[in-house]
Design a protein around this nucleic acid. Structure first.
Ligand SMILES: NC(=O)c1ccc[n+]([C@@H]2O[C@H](COP(=O)([O-])OP(=O)(O)OC[C@H]3O[C@@H](n4cnc5c(N)ncnc54)[C@H](O)[C@@H]3O)[C@@H](O)[C@H]2O)c1
Ligand SMILES: NC(=O)c1ccc[n+]([C@@H]2O[C@H](COP(=O)([O-])OP(=O)(O)OC[C@H]3O[C@@H](n4cnc5c(N)ncnc54)[C@H](O)[C@@H]3O)[C@@H](O)[C@H]2O)c1
Lengths: 233, 233
DNA sequence: TTTGCATTGTTATTAAATTAACAATGTTTA
DNA sequence: TAAACATTGTTAATTTAATAACAATGCAAA
């Protein structure tokens, strides 16, 4: 069994954390650090040091006792695991507010993951460039995606068009889809799909804020109750 | 124990799914459906019907045998659980590409969750409005947040400023923070924090696409190997 | 030099989340 | 009317993820 085969069995959560560790490590590297302890990584990511060590164990990386992990080595290893050697090309479908924000954001950030095309149906947008990325007519998706060897599609159309767009992407031979619209899509087996839902996260925060508010309100009531009870004596 | 107390113990994942169920249900309602089966919800959300039924069991909702769940009722119940009666006010800090996209997106969508202010440090942005939302100077965060009773802050500043911003928000008495920058922040206990990392998700998609590519490549090799082996006979 | 200590790496345990199993029930069909 | 069926609701089992426990190691201080 090849080393990379063991990576296939990494827990999904570990994959996510590796991406996050790398981000933290890159920042540390900029600050001229060369080694880092598990508890330092843990602090940054709001997790436990054990979790960090366990993840690193799973990818077979060893640190140095009392010195920690070599940052550059670890970055390289993570790259080995999650990046693909040749890089992966990405397209954005729907060059609206979010699509453009994403393009601006990603431009020239990651070597191995590059947005190389945008698609839209609005004639005003087709043919224009955003941050150096051309916007093509959605109708030409099939050709462009093959021509530019695009493997991942990001959907940022209005949600009413998410399914059509997913179908077009699948038809064009895409391998992975990241759907930012709040309307989930269906794709056949073999196409990796991630639904990325911004409202859910905000609603989750709101829920726990609400819970905390109620807890606080309750504990005031409880304190009053106790007070009354005490005055009975 | 009040009914809402049982909700405090709902699994985190269930909270997330409730938000997603509601979204799906609202769409179904628009299409003039009035009832829905667990397997229909499941299909939309790419999960199993059992998961749906289990979640609904946890929130104590019962459907009708062979008829499914009453969509409106379920929407209302979910609202009871995750929304707060009075609504929650939200602020965006960092009125850049992402901040503006979020404002455009949220404007007039959810009653119970409204973005009511933006903050920035760029004089060109301060005093302007985006989609009806005023942009204030970050310096006045303390006052405005109290004045407008804002409980949740969304951070969309450059990542170099995420920690400063989080501190300002905490200082101003915010209850929950949603951090969209790739640089995690630290907040004291009692402030609910969610780190929302867009790169991680894309990198995750890329990882599984890569795995699939390698699997496909391997299986070609395997097939050739088998071919060779067979021709030995 | 020795003792204590910080830190890693790994196994064991616990907790959280998902899935499976199946009884209950009322509807439809034969 | 009876048999088959679709669907819910719930408990049990399984899987996945996180945490705890602790041995091993070698540096630092005494
Ligand atoms: N803006 C946000 O912050 C935000 C946040 C979360 C989710 N979303 C979701 O992202 C999606 C886009 O949001 P937005 O604010 O950028 O909307 P937008 O209206 O600004 O942009 C949508 C773009 O998609 C194009 N489009 C429409 N139909 C298309 C099709 N069939 N093929 C290709 N392009 C098509 C439009 O011409 C437009 O340029 C929406 O589904 C929204 O719900 C947005
Ligand atoms: N654009 C995206 O699609 C995207 C995606 C994922 C993550 N992000 C993250 O979101 C953040 C914002 O991205 P963007 O593309 O909108 O950047 P941007 O540069 O367009 O916007 C940043 C805004 O923050 C303001 N700002 C700077 N310092 C501030 C401070 N201390 N207080 C208040 N405001 C301040 C700037 O004036 C600017 O208006 C970044 O951290 C980025 O990494 C962006």
């Amino acid at each position: 069994m090849k080393a990379r085969d063991t990576f296939k069995q990494l827990p999904h959560k570990t994959i996510e954390r590796l991406s996050q560790y790398r981000r933290a490590l890159l920042i540390c590297l900029e600050n001229n650090k060369d080694h880092i302890f598990s508890h330092e990584i843990a602090k940054i990511q709001h997790i436990t040091p054990v979790q960090v060590r366990r993840d690193l164990m799973l990818i077979g990386y060893s640190g140095t006792l009392r010195k920690g992990y070599n940052i550059q080595e670890l970055i390289d290893l993570i790259a080995d695991i999650i990046d693909s050697d040749e890089g992966i090309n990405v397209a954005i479908v729907g060059m609206g507010n979010l699509g453009r924000a994403l393009i601006n954001y990603f431009s020239g950030k990651r070597h191995k993951l590059s947005i190389v095309a945008g698609f839209d149906i609005n004639p005003d947008k087709i043919g224009k460039k955003v941050n150096g990325i051309s916007c093509y007519d959605s109708k030409s998706m099939g050709e462009i995606i093959k021509e530019k060897n695009i493997e991942i599609g990001i959907i940022t159309t209005p949600s009413s068009h998410s399914m059509t767009t997913a179908n077009q992407l699948v038809e064009a031979g895409i391998k992975g889809i990241l759907n930012y619209t709040p309307k989930p899509v269906n794709v056949p087996d073999g196409v990796y799909l991630e639904e990325y839902d911004m409202i859910t996260t905000l609603e989750k925060v709101a829920f726990y804020v609400k819970m905390e508010n109620e807890r606080a309100a309750d504990s005031v009531v409880t304190r009053q109750d106790q007070g009354t009870a005490a005055s009975d004596f």
